[in-house]
Every structure is written in C-alpha cells, then in structure tokens.
Simulated assay, not measured.
Amino acid sequence: MSIAKGDTLPSATFRELTENGPEKVSTDDIFKGKKVVLFAVPGAFTPTCSINHLPTYLENRDAILSRGVDEIAVVAVNDAFVMGGWAKATGGEGKIRYLSDADGSFTKALGMELDLSGGGLGERSKRYSMLVDNGVVKELNVEENSGQATVSAAATILGQL
C-alpha cells in the first residue's frame, strides 16, 4: 500500500554527501519539527529528472521557502556519490538537499517503488512530490507516467502552499 495524505513518514536513514564523505541522516533529522517539500526522481542525471523536474525546484526555491517551508529535498535510489555529483552538476549544492536512498528501503516503505529493469535502471522510485509537516504528509502528487514531471513539479507544490 502506498503512502497517502495524512500518513506519517516511515523511519528511514538516507546518506548525504558532505565534505567528509557520505554521512547518515535520518527522517527525524530532516522532518521533525519542520515543514519540508520532498520530491523523488527515478534517477539522478536522467533526462526528465535533470531537464524537466529538478530545475523547477531550483528556479522556485525562494518562492517555496517564502511560503513557510523550511527545506526542500530530493531523493533518489542512487548512491550518495551520484547524488553529490548531481548536486554539483545542477548548481543545486547548498540550495536543496540531495538524499540517497541507495537500497530503496525508504522508497519501498512508502510503496513508491518502480521497476525500470526493462530500461536498464533496475528498481527505482516513482516520480512524486509531497509537502511534509513534522513528519506527516500534507500533500502528495504522484506522476502516472515516470517520464513526465508535471503533477510533481514545483508549480503544483506552490499552488498547495
């Protein structure tokens, strides 16, 4: 069963690339006592994610934060080094958090796994965005087609804030 509005996020541990290497960060570290916009992509450096999805959050970062959001984070079933490289390549380093769900455990706990083995990518995440307030999902926007970034783009979240 997939996560839904009103549900509490499951406990999980991500990895985030820092100047000291990959460091563990928990769902409590990210969401406890904060309002966070979290969006997921099937894969860092993939065309739709890099060209159509992530840029909407970078371009609308200030507008989102000005509406009471404490932080914006992106998560993908990629390792911390790939996510760190993507942060640098996209100019998003220090602007949003790039979280690695390398083994897909968070994605599976949400019921958001997506089998992209046919395209050579293996198990990944569905494309979605959510507004999370103190660990509780307030808004959830899941793409029907992982190759599109419309319902989960920053404009939708802005309209929900």
Rank of each mutant, 00 (worst) to 15 (best):
S2F: 07
S2N: 15
K5P: 08
D7V: 08
D7L: 05
T8P: 00
L9S: 02
S11R: 03
T13M: 04
E16D: 00
E16L: 09
E19F: 03
G21A: 07
G21T: 10
G21K: 10
V25Q: 11
D28T: 15
D29E: 11
D29G: 02
F31L: 02
G33D: 01
K34F: 05
K34Q: 09
K35M: 00
K35V: 04
L38I: 02
A44N: 10
A44F: 12
T46C: 11
T48D: 07
I51H: 02
L54M: 13
Y57K: 07
L58F: 06
N60H: 10
N60P: 05
D62K: 12
A63W: 00
R67S: 09
R67I: 04
G68I: 06
G68T: 08
I72K: 11
I72Q: 12
A73Y: 01
A73V: 06
V75F: 03
A76W: 05
V77W: 03
N78I: 08
D79S: 03
D79T: 05
A80N: 05
A87G: 06
A89F: 03
T90I: 09
G91C: 09
I96W: 00
R97M: 11
Y98K: 03
L99M: 09
A102Q: 13
D103M: 00
S105C: 01
S105R: 10
T107R: 03
K108L: 00
A109F: 00
L110E: 04
L114I: 04
L114E: 09
D115Y: 13
S117I: 04
S117F: 01
S117N: 10
G120M: 10
R124S: 10
S125D: 12
S125L: 05
Y128I: 07
Y128D: 05
S129C: 13
M130D: 12
V132T: 03
V132Y: 08
V132S: 11
N134Q: 13
G135H: 04
V137S: 07
V137E: 11
E139S: 14
L140I: 04
E144R: 10
Q148P: 00
T150C: 00
V151D: 12
A153Y: 02
A154N: 09
A155D: 15
I157P: 01
I157F: 06
L161H: 09
L161V: 00
